[in-house]
Nucleic acid binder design. Structure first.
Ligand code: FES
Ligand code: FES
Lengths: 141, 141
DNA sequence: TTAATAAAAGATTTTTTTGTCTTTTATTTT
DNA sequence: AAAATAAAAGACAAAAAAATCTTTTATTAA
């Protein structure tokens, strides 16, 4: 479903949402250590998210990555599409050129349900809200 | 979700289920042309399925691939696991070392539900039955 | 205002996946 | 028995994804 880079991106964004803020930024080193993810690879991913304004960053001492209030209103769908491209949620699970209910592949009904369930959550839940839920329910990142 | 090889495998097996039989075998050339899939790559995939007794084959003139009656009783789950390995249906969508409802990641609930829907179909529907449904409902492969 | 810090950017390397080509082996038809 | 056919096997090449390293730029704290 998601590329390795995209999995790292989602986890990193959620980590930032929970553990960082404008006043308490987190560096690549901290995030990569906390999530047990390759440091330099993660750096690239965070850069890409930053360029696309899905996370915020500042250079220099006491600099690092964090989520602005605006960033917290975005959704993971945007994060996913920033890394894996725009077709993640509408491509056929068997790789047919188009996915549609009019011309369904044999797995379409189930695959579509799965994909849409996930899509719906990622699309409608703000990252900030997700973070609160993670803290409340003590979910793993 | 599925590797390219696995997508090709599923489609090829379904093609054989619909268009081939012990009396009317299909060669790599036919299948790759019908599904618009790289020939030599598909050959490797069919070999692997054949070695694992998920499809049948014979060499020589009028040889080719087909599904025996026994093959038709198998499921696509077995095909998928033959190509992509045994963890496809129980690994965390975010790549955490284990996926469980006790230690869920933030996407677990949706991801699990979605995955299980698909898993259930692939696990409980015999390839032979799927083929009949494909013919009946004129689904695309 | 200098030194230290940390992200940004760029260039490379490694690994995995995908795809191709050639040779061998089994089978069948002539 | 010989020729033709088609899968099996093995070796290889190309492309994509993942991971690493180095240099540059911006910022801040001393
Ligand atoms: S057509 Fe294949 S998943 Fe929709
Ligand atoms: S724990 Fe992540 S999908 Fe189950």
């Amino acid at each position: 479903m998601f590329s390795q880079a995209c999995k790292y991106a989602i986890r990193a964004v959620l980590y930032l949402a929970v553990h960082a803020s404008e006043g308490k930024k987190a560096g690549v080193k901290e995030v990569s250590a906390a999530l047990d993810v390759p440091k330099y690879f993660l750096a690239k991913i965070l850069q890409q998210l930053s360029r696309n304004h899905l996370i915020s960053s500042t250079k220099g001492p006491s600099g690092g990555f964090y989520l602005s209030e605006q960033n917290r209103e975005a959704t993971l769908k945007e994060v996913v599409e920033c890394i894996d491209g725009p077709d993640v949620f509408n491509s056929c699970i068997l790789g047919l050129p188009v996915c549609s209910s009019e011309n369904p592949c044999p797995l379409h009904v189930q695959a579509f349900a799965y994909r849409e369930g996930l899509h719906y959550q990622l699309k409608h839940q703000a990252i900030g809200d997700l973070a609160k839920r993670i803290e409340r329910e003590e979910q793993k990142i």
